[in-house]
Amino acid sequence: MKDKKEIVYVWEFPVRFTHWINVLCLLALSVTGLYIGNPYTLAQSSSQYIMGWMRFIHFVAAYAFLMSIIIRIYWFIFGNKYAGLSEWAPFSGKRIGEIADDLRCYLFCCKRTKAHIGHSALGGLSYLLLLAVFFFMVFSGFALYSVNHTGAVWTVLGGWMTNVMYLQTIRLWHHLLMYAIFAFTLIHIYLVLFTESIEETGIFNSIITGDKFIPEKDLE
């Protein structure tokens, strides 16, 4: 494994930017969301505005999160080949086969022989599923918000959902899927570290710098 390595610029600025905006937003949304969903008395007097601020931060972070998702989807189209939707969605049989390989690797059935330049097939699929969860969180969040914000914007962003599901059911899933995102985050960080230890491509730093170090034999 003492191959010569070449620097490849994989994650362009919008990919890194939206990644970290997502991290910040999810952190803010989770902390405030946990309080909103299950508040306890923090206020010393009625003149404080704790829940008010929690909700304000939650709503602002929600808008920022939505913008981040929009930028990332835009970058599906205009980004480099590692940012495209085909890196996430397993369209080809080859890609589906790679998912099986990735799974075997994670279950220690075989050893990963080739470093990934962009996403691994399984990793890409997990981000596609995560995007679906994000979409639900955005729609359900705005559905709850639309209860007292009646306007076309909020109807499109989520108000329509109140015609399909009970408000309380929407609230429940908005709450439950937060835990799914927690679980994803744990697995995500763990597998990045795991992958780094196998591939040694600098994947952990790559989300800051954008560069990965790919062994020459693995460059297509």
């Binding site: 969903g37 609230r171 429940l172 709450h175 439950l176 799914a180 679980a183 697995i187």
Partner: peptide, 24 residues
């Protein structure tokens, strides 16, 4: 919050969520 369907009436969303995180 409503009870989570299929998990028995005593389980709340937070307990299940914490359980999922612990399992992960």
């Amino acid at each position: 919050l409503p009870n989570v369907p299929g998990f028995g009436v005593e389980k709340t969303a937070d307990k299940i969520g914490a359980g999922l995180a612990a399992a992960t």
